[in-house]
Amino acid sequence: MNKIAVIDYGMGNLHSVAKAIEHVGRESGEKLEVIVTADAKKIAAADRVIFPGVGAIRDCMAEILRLDVDQIVEDAMKAKPVLAICVGMQALMRHSEENGGVDCLGFLDGDVRYFGDALTGANGERLKVPHMGWNQVKQIKPHPLWKDVPDNSRFYFVHSYYVQTEKREMVTGISNYGTDIVATVAADNIFATQFHPEKSQTAGLTLLSNFLRWDGSA
């Protein structure tokens, strides 16, 4: 049985991701167990771990540290496939500009920047913040999680801050909203997405299905 732990640190809507994983399991006929938990033992016993996150980074980081989720994620990253989503991805970076500046986990080499209040598109048009809706993702590096996902597929984004990294080799997908943004990163057995695969219909469900089969190698 494929055991998936969704780390629950009290921030936002984890039900969407759990439901999407269960759906993917039903569709493929695979026996799955999806648990939504902050219990370190249960997460250690899972085959795969999902690190979600919505809301403001300061509140997320406070709960992550209070519940020792930092240690849980660090341990999971050493041992099994991990998928980080949205603020979950941002929390893995060094630092975020949100909430006047917040130190993050520093597990990946990147920083989280604000889009700015005066963002403009290619034709000079004003762009709204948050970046909300369906944008294309260009797959700039092959990865098992891209299997059967057409290049430039649209995924659902909702965020006002985005990841920048000097470590280009870890970027597997990019998008553009006024500026190039990191859509996905991969490092060893972690894959992280700025968009919400659980809300991205076929493309997102395919990515989740790939995650359920991924052994953590590149």
């Binding site: 598109g121 762009l127 970046h131 369906w134 944008n135 294309q136 260009k138 984004f157 553009n176």
Partner: peptide, 8 residues
């Protein structure tokens, strides 16, 4: 790569 207008 451009954000799509949404139909709801």
């Amino acid at each position: 790569m451009t954000l799509a207008k949404r139909i709801i």
